[in-house]
Design a protein around this nucleic acid. Structure first.
Length: 818
RNA sequence: GCGGGCGUGGCGGAACGGCAGACGCGUGGGACUUAGGAUCCCAUGAGCAGCGCUCGUGAGAGUUCGAGUCUCUCCGCCCGCACCA
């Protein structure tokens, strides 16, 4: 393809995509690199619709940074791969009625082409595809390590079930009671499932956050999700039932004297045991209703608080009173012990429940300003304890400690920390994932598949439809199911569930540097050299899914001695969301932008530059169809400017002000890229081009060169083409980022604003380091300043050299009120 | 409800506590053109006939010589989490 005199993005980009591929731009010698910089973008999920423009936005932001670091002398490793297993891909295959294996292969091919076209500086030779046996054999290997270290366990538990995807889901994949993938309302089922014990790491996952250089939004989301709370676990005996007691957890042990009833979750195992015979029909009916109720409805805090009395009573060990035990679905089976002591006066939910069912509301905490009687709402704040036996008169905070000490001393309970975080439910009753590499033997129990036999290949089955029976389609493949026990050699059955897609993506970046080692997941040498990841940028929608699972997997592998670090990402930055015409892009709104059409119409250089220009990378921005034209014009101007100047001939050196501007531009673009303020970096380049345009026939070569280098991270093809036309045989990938000379950044003369009493009245051109006395004298002599002063003498002078001068004068007697 | 973020021209968005509105879009005017939805130049927050003044960063108060920026109260929008005891 030939490249002419007019700017033709298609020709320029085709030429340079080829050249970069030939020259191996983006490929790094991982063993010899001297200044490794691991620049990671999120594992692309190759959907059938192709690359989303939101992906182009996200990935370009990563790539701009990578190119910037490359020119700053780093060996930048920016690998790429495909997260192609999982429900999303499989659901699409079901819809299209095409086998996922075939469908995904064509999706990946399409994605690869688009990623190429967006000019990412990717290390293609280290590509990873999570659906390939060479990759998932190690996903299975990681599962086995988890099992061997007691971090994987199959157990019966109430789990989230998606009636549309016909599989169980992890807590993190249920958003407001709906399936994260398909949006269906999730129900609860009692099933035996594989769990990874992430809760064992809750404290470390939480505490490490304090020292991580991550976007604050993500850290906050993780803290909330882990939800650590401190309190007391205690049990109240069931009245008249020797040896039977109801354990509960509370963060407010100070209010124990105010506990006027107890509530059990409908699923609580003691419910059938303690229910009084005459209450049995009502309780059983309520439990049945609660089980049938959809999760979203159950979790709606605005719904009236329903519940029934079991007829049983518990002894409040503080007051010595027998209090009723109710069953209500506002108490969650999965949190704490699934039972609570209800303190209606000081807990909003208990208050609402007590009101609805006519239960007493004894008050035990009084704030200094007192409380109205009757109480209009629960008072959950601090105060002085009243009517609380040995706690009476204490401050509530101190009473909390005293109550715990009392419970521990009397043997009623103990201090306890509780988490909102649940263990990671990893089984999926689906086809499109790595089979969980476990075998069940009637004699030996669960046994891992020997590592030498990995991978456990996903069998080719024609009917990959989920059965809905609570079993994966693999359960129907006799030849897969029947095997022998690795321990005793007897007949055994394979696990037929596959693992959660988030396990695939929890370690992909560990694999990238080691893709050339088929026999080990992570080569120790490579891992030590390249990991942890220097910088990771991606969407905040993965705050508690991917990013939390990944941290857990790394911590676990670290503890097993398999990784030399426990936190995978030194720096994480969340980017914002792309908006189009004021709304989130969605098919139903019809405002989705297809990146191919942008590439075709404007080229990748313009698309990249515009996406980075339209708003702040970390906040997101609004895509405007006319706005992109501005950037297109800008690149045209750059092209014409450099071409025109080349034809006119180069001057020796830029005049002094032009040289100062050049250095100021270098400084601004450098600083802005480092801070991810790509939009203002591009604005600085535009200003520079505007300024150079004013002297287009008298440019110096170094001005055009600086422009090309600074532009390269955003618009690499046009920058490389112009660079070549300036006479460089080597491409810009071998160039160095220019350094701003601090001497050139200092202004000699400035336009100094003059304020009188804080209001702008005049400005004057002065030397930047003008002394205060001279500045005041010069200013005071100016007619407009004299007028504003109205004959008064300044009583105070605020002078910031080079920035502004403020003369403060008291309002004189002449101007005052009579 | 809790947590986080944000409110700036017609629009997207800039502004170490120091000239509000950089840069871009749009709009108006002009130039060059057979022509322009191309390119270039000029203008563009509002008000006032007065080219300077007044008002202007969601509303109100406060701190300061000086506040879009810091503090408090309120209103509105967005994003998380949401009956977590």
């Amino acid at each position: 393809m030939s490249v002419g005199v007019r700017y033709d993005p298609t020709a320029v980009e085709a030429k340079w995509l080829r050249r970069w591929a030939e020259e191996g731009v983006g490929e790094v010698d991982l063993d010899r690199a001297e200044r490794p910089f691991y620049n990671l973008l999120m594992f692309p999920y190759p959907s059938a619709e192709g690359l989303h423009v939101g992906n182009v936005f996200a990935f370009t932001g990563v790539d701009v940074f990578g190119r910037f670091m490359a020119l700053n002398g780093y060996d930048v490793f920016e690998p790429i791969g495909f997260d192609a297993f999982g429900i999303h891909s499989e659901n699409f295959a079901l819809k299209m009625n095409v086998h996922p294996k075939r469908l995904i292969a064509s999706n990946v091919a399409h994605f690869r082409e688009q990623l190429h076209r967006m000019e990412g500086m990717f290390a293609w030779s280290h590509e990873v595809d999570s659906t390939q046996p060479e990759y998932y054999k190690f996903t299975q290997w990681i599962f086995i390590q988890m099992f061997k270290h007691g971090l994987a366990e199959k157990r019966m538990a109430p789990v989230n079930w998606c009636p549309s995807c016909l599989t169980v889901l992890a807590n993190e994949q249920v958003i407001g009671g709906a399936c994260e993938r398909c949006g269906s309302q999730v129900t609860t089922r009692q099933l035996e499932q594989w769990f990874l014990k992430i809760t064992r790491y809750a404290d470390r996952l939480l505490d490490n956050l304090d020292h991580l250089d991550w976007s604050e939004v993500v850290k906050t989301a993780q803290r909330n999700w882990i939800g650590r709370s401190h309190g007391l676990e205690m049990a109240f005996p069931v009245v008249g039932r020797e040896g039977l007691s109801v354990a509960f957890f509370t963060t407010r042990p100070d209010t124990v004297f105010g506990a006027s009833f107890m509530v059990l979750a409908p699923e609580h195992p003691l419910v059938p045991e303690i229910t009084a015979p005459e209450r049995r029909p009502a309780v059983e009916a309520y439990v049945r209703e609660a089980a049938a109720r959809r999760e979203a409805e159950r979790l709606d805090p605005t719904r009236p608080k329903t519940g029934v009395d079991t007829g049983a009573r518990a002894l409040n060990l503080a007051t010595g009173e027998a209090i009723p035990i109710w069953v209500a679905d506002y108490v969650l089976a999965g949190y704490g012990t699934g039972a609570i002591m209800a303190v209606p006066a000081h807990d909003e939910r208990d208050f609402a429940f007590a009101r609805a069912h006519g239960l007493p509301v004894p008050l035990v905490v009084r704030p200094p300003e007192g409380l109205p009687d009757p109480l209009p709402a629960a008072y959950a704040g601090e105060g002085t304890m009243v009517d609380s036996g040995f706690l009476t008169g204490m401050d509530s905070a101190a009473a909390r400690e005293a109550a715990i000490a009392w419970a521990e001393r009397e043997g009623y309970g103990r201090r306890r920390v509780t988490y909102r975080l649940r263990d990671w439910l990893i089984s999926r009753q689906r086809y499109w994932g790595p089979p969980i590499p476990m075998v069940h033997c009637p004699a030996c129990g669960w046994q891992p598949v020997p590592e030498s036999e990995l991978p456990v290949l996903l069998p080719d089955v024609e009917d990959f439809r989920p059965a809905g029976s609570g079993q994966s389609p693999l359960a129907a493949v006799e030849s897969f199911v029947h095997t022998t026990c690795p321990a005793c050699g007897g007949p055994a059955r394979r696990e037929t569930d596959v693992s959660d897609n988030f396990l695939d993506s929890a370690w992909y970046f560990l694999r990238y540097p080691s893709t050339d080692f088929p026999d080990r997941a992570m080569d120790p040498e490579r891992t030590r050299k390249w990991l942890p990841v220097d910088r990771y940028m991606g969407g905040k929608e993965h705050s508690v899914l991917h990013l939390m699972y990944t941290r857990f997997v790394c911590m676990a592998l670290h503890d097993m001695g398999l990784l030399p670090f426990e936190e995978p990402f030194k720096v994480f930055r969340a980017h914002g969301m792309m908006i189009h015409n004021g709304a989130k892009m969605s098919k139903s709104r019809g405002n989705v932008i297809n990146p191919d059409s942008l590439f075709d119409r404007y080229g990748a250089d313009t698309t990249r530059t515009y996406l980075m220009f339209m708003g702040s990378y970390q906040e997101g921005g609004d895509f405007s169809d006319s706005g992109i034209q501005g950037v297109y014009r800008f690149l045209h101007r750059v092209w014409d400017l450099v071409q025109g100047a080349a034809e006119a001939g180069w001057r020796e050196a830029p005049p002094p002000e032009a040289e100062r501007l050049r250095h100021r531009t270098i400084a601004r673009v450098t600083r802005d890229i480092q801070a991810l303020h790509y939009n203002t970096a591009i604005a600085a380049l535009m200003e520079y081009v505007n300024a150079l345009g004013a002297r287009r026939d008298r440019l110096a070569l170094c001005e055009a060169e600086t422009l090309c280098v600074l532009l390269w991270p955003f618009a690499p093809a046009i920058a490389d083409e112009l660079w070549e036309r300036l006479g460089h045989a080597d491409g810009l990938w071998r160039a160095r980022w220019p350094q701003a000379d601090p001497e050139q950044l200092r202004d000699e003369e400035v336009e100094l604003p003059i304020q009188v009493n804080g209001r702008l009245r005049d400005r004057m051109r002065v030397s930047a380091d003008l002394g205060e006395a001279e500045a005041v004298a010069l200013a005071a002599a100016r007619p407009r300043v004299r007028e504003a002063l109205g004959g008064r003498e300044p009583t105070r002078v605020v002078y910031v050299p080079g920035r502004m001068l403020n003369l403060v004068a008291q309002p004189g007697g002449d101007g005052g009120r009579g």
